[in-house]
């Protein structure tokens, strides 16, 4: 019996945001990445348009990180020793974007300086042709100091600068305004806070098509349902026509999942948990794939294998499902 699939007529759509700039637009990226533009919920091709695929960013750091899982250290090996080299490796592993984050201190234990941040960004920009996102360690004063220098170093590249948070966004937005970048607006799993931050940033004259919002999430088993639900509601509000929620969404999946016990611990866990490496990668890939289903446009992951797996999911989901179903 033929079943007619009910279809929703949405009033709104997600804004289209382009990351990175090629030589034609004053940057040096080989190509740009465009996200957003959806006129329906994720992958309902029969109902609306999904003009741009969700993309996978690979997180790298300005130096060989402390406290990252040894699985990740093995996967990237010596290439983690230099941010340029690491970015290159990430590009080779299939990343769509590079997400460079800074630690609070350098390898020598000294606080990360604006100069070293500048140097790291320069190396990454020189080593890869992919668009780049850059975030500070998440402490307001340090973030501001580093990001202002980064904004200047990467002028014209349409970087994504993070993190703008409700208590600290003005300096980063100002830096983005002054040097033609985008910002990464992060709020703690709350629809209204996300919306409010977008309003505040936009109120500083940064156009909405230069904001990516990060509603934050938990890992699988650690509050993913809360993050999922907030993202879903943000996307529903966007489609219903609320302009201040019509921004592409980003989630830092790697940062969350590699904190989970299931990813972190290889020994002394029940045998039924299976092979550690497989489990850890699955944790990241499953978290990322789930959040893509709730509307994530950019997922940031850490393991090279996760990039492949998430890409495979996106490939299959982007295969248009027919009108009316079969």
């Amino acid at each position: 019996m033929p079943v007619k699939i009910p279809m929703e007529k949405w009033a709104g759509s997600v804004r289209t945001v382009t990351l990175g700039a090629t030589a034609a637009d004053g940057g040096t990226r080989q190509h740009t990445v465009t996200v957003g533009g959806e006129t329906t919920l994720p992958f309902l091709h029969f109902e609306g348009e999904i003009p741009n695929r969700p993309v996978v960013a690979t997180e790298i750091q300005d130096r060989r990180p402390d406290g990252w899982s040894e699985l990740l250290m093995e996967a990237w090996g010596d290439r983690m020793n230099d941010p340029g080299d690491w970015a290159k490796a990430a590009e080779e592993a299939g990343a769509d974007l590079i997400a460079l984050t800074f630690g609070l201190t350098g390898l020598d234990g000294q606080p990360t300086s604006a100069e070293s941040a500048r140097l790291a960004v320069r190396k990454v920009l020189d080593a890869t042709g992919l668009p780049v996102m850059v975030s500070g360690p998440g402490q307001a004063e340090v973030d501001n100091e580093l990001l202002v220098a980064v904004a200047e170093e990467g002028a014209g590249e349409r970087l994504v600068l993070g993190y703008c948070e409700d208590r600290n966004y003005r300096t980063i937005v100002a830096a983005a305004l002054g040097h033609g970048h985008l910002v990464h607006a992060r709020t703690a799993m709350d629809v209204n806070l996300a919306k409010q931050l977008n309003i505040l940033i936009n109120d500083m004259q940064l156009p909405l098509d230069r904001i990516i919002m990060d509603p934050t999430t938990g890992a699988l088993g650690y509050g993913i349902e809360y993050g999922y639900s907030v993202m879903e509601r943000l996307r529903l509000a966007a489609l219903q026509g609320d302009s201040m929620t019509q921004l592409p969404m980003l989630v830092t999946v790697g940062e969350e999942t590699w904190k989970a016990k299931e990813s972190k611990v290889g020994q002394g866990v029940p045998e039924t948990w299976g092979v550690w490496e497989e489990r850890a990668i699955n944790w990241e890939a499953v978290t990322a794939s789930s959040l893509i289903q709730s509307g994530a446009d950019i997922v940031v992951v850490r393991h090279p294998e996760s990039v492949k797996r998430v890409h495979a999911v996106i490939d299959s989901m982007m295969t248009a499902n027919d009108r009316g179903g079969s």
Partner: peptide, 12 residues
């Protein structure tokens, strides 16, 4: 201009 502009815009 850019350096001071950032401080003017962010309110410092």
């Amino acid at each position: 201009l850019r350096s001071w502009g950032i401080q003017l815009v962010d309110g410092r």
